[in-house]
């Protein structure tokens, strides 16, 4: 479902963040993307939701080529992908409910469907009781759960997470991982960039290591493989 073919990315400042990446990710996979800071991990992730465009090569997601996708079609792509960030990226002036509902409003769902889906997904992440609160009134873990709720409320086939536990304490991180586990169990592909060695080594999944803009390791059930 996701395929990168000879992807090369050079930034205007001369840094080469992807130096010929070839990779294939099947529907339903759970993939950790690991590697030292500045190795091209974030670029690898960002190219998948067209935040960055490859300098050359092709990126295919469900048959859409992101390398040639028009700017005007990017919103349509983003609606098929859930994205979770380290800094949550919630809209500060909107309540928990409104933040999650936003993802459905952009696809012009009926209010009835929106209400139903938002409440369902808030229940899944355990925040049904806090629907009316604002992001600043929540803990980091709760904010990340809102962000996850927003990313999956559309029922996308793919969820991309860029260090989703990066700002959270260990205990909260495990809770967040349980939610991802549940989402993955429904058949959703999950691609997660992470620095959390404990999680990678405990919940074993496919591990892709990116270094110097290249995939240096790709193994199912692999280890984190870097020193703390």
């Amino acid at each position: 479902m996701i395929e990168m073919i000879n992807v090369y990315k050079k930034y205007p400042n001369g840094i080469v963040a992807a130096n010929g990446i070839d990779v294939k990710i099947e529907q339903g996979d759970f993939v950790y993307v690991v590697g030292p800071s500045g190795a091209g991990k974030t670029t690898f992730i960002k190219m998948m939701y067209r935040e960055e465009r490859p300098t050359s090569g092709d990126i295919l997601i469900n048959g859409i080529n992101l390398a040639t996708l028009k700017n005007s079609k990017v919103p349509l792509l983003r609606r098929q992908i859930g994205v979770v960030f380290q800094d949550f990226k919630l809209l500060p002036r909107l309540s928990v409910y409104e933040n999650v509902a936003f993802a459905l409003e952009v696809i012009e769902e009926t209010p009835k469907v929106i209400r139903q889906k938002v409440m369902d997904v808030l229940e899944l992440v355990g925040l049904k009781g806090k629907a009316r609160m604002f992001p600043t009134e929540l803990s980091g873990g709760e904010q990340q759960r809102v962000s996850i709720a927003r990313s999956i409320v559309n029922r996308p086939k793919l969820v991309i997470a860029d260090e989703p536990t990066g700002n959270l304490d260990p205990e909260t991180s495990w809770e967040i991982m349980n939610i991802f586990k549940e989402i993955n169990a429904r058949g959703t592909t999950i691609i997660m960039a992470t620095h959390n060695r404990e999680i990678v080594n405990t919940i074993r999944h496919r591990v892709i290591a990116v270094e110097g803009g290249l995939i240096t390791r790709d193994e199912y059930g692999g280890e984190y493989g870097y020193e703390g």
Partner: peptide, 15 residues
């Protein structure tokens, strides 16, 4: 930042 986030969630420019 709000505008950036809205775009990431799949909002079109007109939206």
């Amino acid at each position: 930042r709000d505008i950036e986030i809205m775009k990431l969630v799949g909002a079109t420019n007109w939206f």
